[in-house]
Amino acid sequence: MLFRNFTPFPPLQFESRDEQRRDFGVVVLRGTFEIRNYQPLFLVQEQEPLIMADVYHGEPGKSSLWKEGNLAPYKPKTDIHINAIAHAPEGKPLPQWNVAVKVGKIQKHLLVMGPRYWYQERGWRLTEPQPCLQVPIRYEQAYGGIYQQAVYQENPVGLGYVPSKTAEMTTSTPLPAPQIMSPDDPITEWGKIYKPEGLGPLAPAWQPRVAYAGTFNAVWEKTRWPDLPEDFQFDFYNSAHPDLIYPGLVEGNETIELRNLSATERLQFKLPGFTLGLLVRWEDGEIAPMPVRLDTIHVEVPEMKVYLTWRGIFPVGEAIRVLEVRMRGGERWGVNRMEQVVKYPFLQSQQHHKKQE
């Protein structure tokens, strides 16, 4: 099979299998863009390569996920990942402030605080937050963690997790308290279970992701290994915080707005509006257009870059002669030359079209 890429984005093509043991092909493309405030994303000249494995902020298993690898075969919805540092408004130290994210029709708000601690004085009490200028938005600063042998599965690397209000703990050393929380449910009670808050991706072993992985037991090992369990769901590959999984797939041209997540109080930019698609050419002359969807948006605020990942699937087991990735509507993004190589319309239908004799 000949593979042609008529886009400026580095591609990867591989095969996968679903929970019903059906094989399918996958094409992934990763685009690198520069953030220019109040402007559309700017396509950079030197595109960065795809990421072959998950990248963590520190040691895997002991730190939060920073950059997700690009090897997911399929995502039902679009993930939004944001790596950022909360900046106090007007550059003045504050004990607490709000940050916000808006992407198209969804938005998320966080309350961040300066360092604060739990201490024992006739029960557990909280110190007042210390004024500060910045708070990294990482799950290490959110609610979660490990209490003795009990692990908080939604965020094992966080702070403040205690299984119950009656849990015994005696120490004269103050314990760090979470600095990132929901403004609708601020963390004030020792022993209360809180929802972990953040903007980055969740590791594969964390809840709620791992719940979609299916049942790996002796029956699976005996009857299905190495295939997926029958109850596997592709929602497993949606790695964003549940509040930042888009309701469906973004269409393009959506505006992204970040507040108090950079040195500039408001950072605003627009997603590209072009479309990618696959054109499959079989040995018998039949051709078929198939969609390639934008399913991952990674905003790297410290670098002022955005990484977009598109993914498309196609049938395998048939005699495919040529697989092409094509682009439409890239003129305003500086890639109009890609439009010139398109000889067939695509994304008009998902039905096969016989080549004209």
Results as ranks from 00 to 15, higher is better:
43 L>F: 04
79 D>A: 13
98 N>C: 10
57 H>W: 15
33 F>I: 09
127 T>K: 01
55 V>K: 11
140 E>T: 02
119 Y>W: 04
71 L>Q: 11
130 Q>S: 12
129 P>D: 00
30 R>F: 04
67 K>W: 07
45 Q>C: 01
106 I>K: 07
136 P>I: 09
69 G>W: 13
80 I>W: 13
128 E>P: 07
75 K>C: 01
64 S>G: 11
81 H>M: 06
81 H>W: 06
68 E>C: 12
53 A>N: 15
94 L>F: 03
123 G>A: 09
40 P>Y: 03
136 P>L: 08
131 P>N: 10
42 F>G: 00
75 K>H: 05
130 Q>A: 13
132 C>Q: 09
94 L>R: 12
34 E>L: 01
85 I>G: 08
67 K>R: 12
62 K>E: 11
124 W>G: 00
40 P>L: 04
29 L>Y: 09
94 L>N: 08
40 P>S: 04
111 L>H: 14
84 A>V: 07
127 T>M: 00
99 V>W: 08
106 I>Y: 07
134 Q>P: 13
78 T>H: 11
80 I>F: 10
135 V>H: 05
37 N>Y: 04
104 G>C: 03
135 V>K: 06
32 T>R: 01
56 Y>F: 08
105 K>G: 09
101 V>C: 03
56 Y>T: 05
137 I>N: 04
83 N>C: 11
140 E>Q: 09
29 L>S: 14
75 K>Q: 06
31 G>A: 13
42 F>D: 01
34 E>V: 03
103 V>P: 05
138 R>P: 12
58 G>V: 03
101 V>D: 03
119 Y>R: 01
46 E>N: 13
124 W>L: 01
131 P>E: 05
125 R>K: 12
76 P>D: 14
29 L>Q: 14
72 A>F: 15
51 I>R: 11
72 A>H: 09
57 H>F: 15
129 P>F: 00
107 Q>D: 08
42 F>H: 07
95 P>E: 03
72 A>P: 11
72 A>N: 11
68 E>Y: 12
47 Q>D: 05
33 F>D: 04
107 Q>I: 05
77 K>V: 09
139 Y>P: 06
125 R>W: 03
72 A>L: 07
41 L>N: 04
116 R>D: 00
52 M>K: 14
67 K>Q: 10
41 L>S: 03
65 L>V: 05
53 A>R: 15
46 E>A: 14
114 G>P: 07
124 W>N: 01
53 A>F: 14
127 T>Y: 04
87 H>A: 06
87 H>M: 05
36 R>P: 04
